[in-house]
């Protein structure tokens, strides 16, 4: 149960835990392509439940608790040694808004939910360099298969309703006989339907020990503020002009050479116009 007071000014510099909608851009294997005929596939679950929100100035305010959950399939497949195709398909997405009662138990506002497919990404990664450092260019097409106005109020979303196209450059290198790796990413996301375009960036490092990979990913998003000023975002998951720098630790356990599972979370030190809560991600992967 949640106590609702309205402002928690001054929390912005705390390691506030963030609503990172990072699932879609955190798998793509960095600059390394999949060899021809090889693939990586993952069944995953992404969840966030938030009762706080980063305002446009980055302060945190309490909100009615809202949640977003996506069960997704992610895949990479090497069409050639140079060209890899990627798919992120949230085949079940669910957005919820809590019921609100006053202290005496009297209904203030009904809760609601919406279930649907989620926004889906299809990508094409072309490997440019693969000697020492692997560098690839990635084109990602964001298909608006989710529901941008669901629930009784029309305010719940499982997608943003816009078709976006992102181009990015990924570079990766391994060290220490494969025990370490590092990746960097820089991308431009062209958004439609009144959303501002975005610069996306990320750094990632991994360390292999026993059967585990310990991974830390730092990523960020900066809007170019060139969207429609009168555009009305429905909620804080698919909002416009989102801005954040996030830290995303992840642990991967290799059960066998060809499969294992992963758990991760998302945290932020600074954010605007996004839910302020931990985001969790877990999945099972298979390599072929």
């Amino acid at each position: 149960m949640k106590q609702q007071s309205f402002i928690k000014v001054g929390l912005k510099f705390i390691l506030a835990i963030l609503a990172l909608f990072y699932a879609a851009n955190s798998y793509a294997g960095g600059g390394w392509p999949q060899p021809k005929g090889s693939g990586y596939f993952k069944l995953g679950q992404y969840s966030i439940i938030a009762d706080s929100y980063f305002t446009p100035a980055g302060d945190i305010v309490d909100i009615t608790t809202t949640g977003f959950h996506a069960t997704y399939l992610y895949g990479e497949y090497g069409i050639t040694d140079k060209l890899t195709t990627t798919v992120y398909f949230p085949f079940f997405s669910r957005s919820t808004l809590n019921r609100v009662e006053d202290a005496s138990g009297e209904l203030v506002q009904e809760g609601e939910s919406v279930n649907s497919l989620g926004d889906t990404d299809i990508g094409f990664k072309y490997n440019i360099i693969n000697k020492g450092v692997a560098v690839s260019a990635l084109l990602t097409l964001g298909l608006p298969l989710g529901n941008p106005s669901g629930g009784a109020s029309g305010l719940l979303q499982t997608g943003d309703g816009e078709f976006n196209q992102m181009i990015s450059i990924d570079a990766s290198k391994s060290f220490g006989g494969g025990k370490f790796y590092a990746s960097a990413m820089l991308g431009f996301n062209n958004r439609t339907q009144g959303f501002s375009d975005e610069i996306r960036y990320g750094l990632e490092g991994g360390y292999h020990f026993s059967n585990f990979w310990a991974i830390m990913r730092i990523d960020g998003r900066t809007p170019l503020m060139n969207g429609n000023e009168d555009f009305i975002p429905n909620n804080g998951i698919f909002s416009n002009n989102i801005e954040f720098i996030g830290f995303n630790p992840e642990l991967v356990y290799e059960v066998k050479d060809n499969w294992g599972f992963s758990v991760g979370a998302g945290f932020a030190v600074n954010a605007k116009r996004i839910l302020a809560a931990p985001a969790y991600n877990a999945g099972i992967y298979l390599k072929i």
């Binding site: 969840s47 439940i49 809590n98």
Partner: peptide, 10 residues
């Protein structure tokens, strides 16, 4: 994790 919960106003 995906059920609709209840918030109680202070």
């Amino acid at each position: 994790t995906s059920c609709i919960g209840t918030d109680v106003l202070e």
